[in-house]
Design a protein around this nucleic acid. Sequence first.
DNA 1: CGGCTTTGACCCGCGC
DNA 2: GCGCGGGTCAAAGCCG
Length: 171
Amino acid sequence: MHDLCYSPRFITSKSMMERHEVIFPISSSKDASPIDVKPGNASNIHAKKAELFLKTIRKETSKQKGGKEIMKHRYVFQTRSQIDILDDGFRWRKYGEKSVKNNKFPRSYYKCTYRGCNVKKQIQRHSKEEQIVETTYEGVHIHPVEKSTESFDQILRNFITSNQLYNVTAM
DNA sequence: CGGCTTTGACCCGCGC
DNA sequence: GCGCGGGTCAAAGCCG
């Protein structure tokens, strides 16, 4: 049940949304009714909707060696922000940067610094809408949040509460 | 000195 | 096989 430590629910927690302007679904998707949550305007309904959306992404699979399909823990979401790196409470080490085709902004690659924890994330700014930052998480943390600022303790507390409420699924 | 970025090289899968 | 695009490595350098 390491999933307790980190899941899409964490990203979509009400307090996370209060800190960052989160946009669901991502604007490249076909869904006609994006949820654009302004900081300080996040409700449980927003969190619930976003969570439902993330669940659909969650079904993404990838082929492993031998052709076996495995479930990918890969969650993409967008925030509207001047700052590229949103503070999610985990410690990240940058390990690469690449320019991608048809995009004037480079993509940055980060790894979670916790020993043995293999979670990665990619951060990329939109070339069309420059104020939008797209963050991709891959993997599940094997440990709780490391950074513990006062404000973040609150987020963590809410996060744990919502996990207890929603009966978390492992894997 | 330790932890982190930077940055070019390397690697790998895919389409031609 | 080759080149391209994208992901990762790792040496060097920066900074507290």
